[in-house]
Design a protein around this nucleic acid. Structure first.
Length: 532
RNA sequence: GCCUCUCUAGCUCAACGGUAGAGCAGUGGACUUUUAAUCCAUUGGUUCAGGGUUCGAGACCCUGGGGAGGCACCA
């Protein structure tokens, strides 16, 4: 048996039924207690009641206002590609089946113009009463903005040259019960935009564009990493220990195992276990959770791409950082030029490198180095109004000084390098300076976008560094990690020389999309629950 | 967590302390090449919630709630 034929027939039947039911439209004034009460008045409730009543009429006439499928032959972009060059006033016999949401409707008596949109674009429907017939035309007139329709018709252009599909049949694919946001002004209320992302996406072109860019960026990363021989892996989200980053975790509990678990704050320690195991090049695009503040640059859950490469050091990590990001810009935007604070920045230009201690020294006017006496470092901090905890060493104080005095001026892409050992418990000591590490952070527009280093693979030294963290935690630092015995055991099996990198995907998406709040690149940002 | 701002019709926005309004959407009507179609008519409100001041509160004050920005913390 031929399903396709049967389906086409049944669609036709449904359509005819729909048009019959639409004749009820002429009868709204007919006494009908139920309809009368719901149709009275306006406002959201009345509008929903009106459309729900319409649904019941369709169903009563045997029409399903929510049919199961529609077979389309062309996306709207494909229609535009195929027939975009038609001269004004051209009629073709080229058949297409297209589907989309009704975005605009212009009723001019015996003609209705409707703009429909699918994921790929918009095309106008040119619906003629003479072509579709009286009943079907009434059904078209009863369509609401926001309804989904499927159309069989031919391609044409109007006298003014507007590319259009001239339907022979219009099938309702899904009835909208709730009105769309304003067709001209759109949806501005930020609360509503983030809570009802579906409404935001249907009406705001920019919102759709941000997430297309984000998708292209992520897809580009995967392609670049594949070219370099990296394997994508998935490691636990639920961690028995906190580690891999200095951050406050979310805590949860497993009932059957009766154990506390933490939502991961990083994937670093798991990925390096895989390097120990010999996987050589691994990465994870990892949803990560930090129980900290919410701000235009911070969401409690966010996405980091972390990669680890055996036999590489930090110099290779800087090179791949540049390649990943410039390629992603090219793939997502078609250009490597992005805008930072209104100024064009070409990501393809070389990214300067500057040592963190040099920038901090420059901005404070004092030579700073983690080997300096603690008292001197504290003096500089006091002079710059930087709060200092008793347990902090000179390295941590220098980092604070950098953040307070120098970070804001790093606007163009810059690798900040050479972080003090004290603030880099997993990074390897600089081969030329025992107080610094072979580490870098990429800053753009004063925001940290990436962080990478030559990995510490000496299990004895790693244990000592962990013990310092444990001491810090006991001294009251609730962001410090704990001692991960299993990770030390892994290192004891031997981890090859390794370079590692983490990239903040949300922040990179912000840079590419040219937005200044992280909520614009997270589909469903964390919000307090809505009260209904 | 603190400070500031903000919340009015489904959406976008008005309203000096003095009868809550407009545009869009909706409803009824006209129109066979429109482009946010246009034209005529028209429905629609617990002004976030609860108190208070006042002859009178959308507006002023207090408390609470949502959101935004800033600070703190972080990526």
């Amino acid at each position: 048996m031929d399903h396709r034929t049967k389906r086409a027939e049944s669609r036709h039947v449904r359509y005819r039924q729909l048009t019959v039911s639409e004749q009820h439209n002429d009868n709204v004034s007919t006494p009908d207690p139920g309809t009368e009460t719901v149709a009275a008045g306006s406002g959201l409730d009345a509008e929903r009641a009106r459309r729900l009543a319409l649904l019941e009429e369709l169903r009563a006439a045997g029409t399903n206002p929510y049919p199961y499928r529609f077979d389309r032959t062309h996306t709207l972009a494909e229609v535009r590609e195929g027939w975009g060059q038609l001269e004004p006033g051209t009629e073709t016999d080229d058949p297409v089946a297209v589907a989309g949401r009704v975005m605009l409707k212009r009723d001019s008596g015996k003609l209705v113009f409707a703009t429909i949109r699918d994921r790929s674009g918009e095309v106008q429907l040119f619906i003629s009463k003479a072509v579709v017939g009286d009943d079907a035309f009434a059904a078209v007139k009863a369509l609401d903005l926001g309804d989904w329709v499927g159309v069989d018709g031919t391609v044409m252009t109007t006298r003014k040259g507007e590319l259009s599909v001239k339907p022979e049949r219009v099938e309702l694919l899904a009835k909208a019960i709730r009105p769309m946001p304003d067709k001209w002004h759109g949806l501005h209320d930020v609360d509503t935009r983030f809570r009802q992302r579906y409404a935001d996406l249907m009406i705001n072109e920019d919102a759709r564009r941000h997430f297309e860019i984000r998708h292209e960026m992520t897809a580009s990363f995967r392609r670049t990493l594949a070219r370099h021989g990296f394997i994508e892996v998935e490691t636990p989200v639920l961690h028995p220990e906190v580690g891999g980053a200095t951050a406050r975790p979310f805590t949860t509990h497993h009932n059957t195992l009766d154990m506390s678990l933490y939502l991961r704050v990083a994937v670093e320690l798991y990925l390096k276990r895989l390097i120990v195991g010999g996987m050589e090049r691994v990465y994870e695009i990892a949803r990560t959770f930090r129980n900290e503040g919410v701000s235009p640059r911070h969401n409690p859950e966010f996405t980091m791409m972390e990669l680890y490469q055996a036999f590489a050091d930090w110099t290779e990590m800087m090179a791949i950082t540049e390649e990943l990001i410039t390629t992603a810009a090219r793939d997502a935007l078609g250009t490597t030029v992005v805008h930072v604070r209104g100024e064009p920045v070409d990501l393809a230009d070389p990214w300067p490198r500057a040592r963190l201690i040099d920038l901090a020294s420059e901005s404070t006017g004092t030579e700073l180095h983690p080997s300096m006496p603690l008292a001197d470092a504290r003096k500089v901090a006091a002079a710059h109004d930087v709060h200092v905890e008793d347990r902090w060493g000179a390295g941590k104080i220098i980092e604070e000084l950098f953040e307070k005095t120098a970070e804001a001026s790093v606007v163009r892409p810059t690798f900040i390098t050479g972080h003090p050992v004290e603030i880099s418990p997993l990074a390897r000591v600089d081969r030329d300076d025992p107080f610094l590490t072979e580490r870098f952070e990429l800053f753009v527009d004063a925001r940290e976008l990436a962080n990478g280093y030559t990995e510490l693979n000496d299990p004895v030294e790693q244990r000592a560094r962990f013990e310092e963290e444990v001491a810090a935690k006991e001294a009251g630092d609730d962001e410090a990690g704990s001692l991960d015995e299993d990770y030390i055991r892994a290192l004891e099996y031997g981890m090859p020389p390794t370079g590692g990198l983490g990239v903040g995907m949300d922040r990179l998406a912000m840079l590419l999309a040219g937005v200044d709040t992280i909520k614009e690149v997270i589909l469903f940002p964390t919000l307090r629950p809505e009260v209904f």
